[in-house]
Amino acid sequence: MPNKNTLFIGKVVHDFQALSSTNSYAQNLLAKSKPIEGTVISAATQTEGRGQIGSKWESPGGQSLSLSVILYPGFLVARKQFELNMVTALALRDTLSVYARSTVWVKWPNDIYLGHRKVAGILIQNQLSGQQVQHSIIGTGVNINQPSFPPELPGATSLYLDTGNRHDLPAVASAYLHTLEQRYLQLRGGQHVRLKRDYYQHLLGYQEQRTYRLPNGEEFVAEAAGVDETGRLLLRMGGQLKAFGLKEISLVPDYS
């Protein structure tokens, strides 16, 4: 159903009971035509949902939100495309904070946490044209009404587990599309300073001493000092800043 609370995001919706991946469907749409900006693809169930760099995203039928939004941020230079992650993460945080009992955190680079546990993931796929972003597929998966998770996902949670209440999926989706549009319009309007300020305000571990882990298993304590314009995490260690890209560093989980 088209979203009544937005200017353009969600005015066209392709809604399915099941898809292999909403992002993949959006890619196929873009390969064949030029959907209007703000076109949404949603699925009650994703059979091959993906996270960042090939990780899998669990998407059981009727219990989670699986959405992809097509945008055309031609105003955005390629080296700053991580700002789309900021926009999406803040939109999810803005939305979930209305419902959640726990504090809603943005976890670099592409997750949303309720307290110490993951409730949502982001997968953004950008097509570049020269130095500009030609189009973007903003994919999100949000755990809403799951009563439990398998043992191999010890750090997962849902709004239901956080609040004890079941939530109306279309209502949460409508709220998210509204906040996504608001944050996207801030980016389009050049409000970069505000977006970064808000992102840091809700960034898990920002300006705190936390334990991080390298791919080889080595752990160390450092302070997150922010992100650079390309989206690398800046860690302060021994008075020096070092930048880490995707899969080069991870925050050691704390499920307490």
Rank of each mutant, 00 (worst) to 15 (best):
L90E: 12
I36E: 09
A43W: 01
K32Q: 13
V98K: 04
V133S: 01
K107N: 09
G130K: 12
L92M: 15
W108Y: 08
W108G: 10
L123D: 02
K56Q: 15
V104S: 12
Q63L: 15
G74R: 13
T47E: 12
G74W: 08
K118R: 11
E58C: 02
R79Q: 09
G38N: 00
K56N: 13
G74P: 03
Q125H: 10
T88N: 14
T95N: 03
W105H: 15
Q46Y: 08
P35D: 04
V40I: 14
Q63G: 08
R50A: 12
P60M: 03
I137Q: 00
I112K: 03
G51F: 00
Y25R: 12
S129G: 13
R101V: 07
S102K: 14
L90S: 06
F75P: 10
A43T: 02
K118W: 08
K107D: 11
S97G: 00
Q131D: 15
K32D: 11
W105T: 11
V98Y: 12
T39M: 03
V98N: 03
S42W: 03
T88H: 08
D94R: 00
A100F: 11
S66W: 02
L29D: 05
I36Q: 04
L29Q: 09
G51Y: 01
V106F: 05
A89Q: 14
A26T: 07
H135D: 08
V104M: 07
A31N: 15
T88G: 11
Y99M: 06
G54E: 02
P109T: 06
G61L: 00
F75V: 10
R50F: 11
A44Y: 03
E48F: 02
P109H: 09
H116I: 00
L84H: 03
S97A: 11
K80V: 00
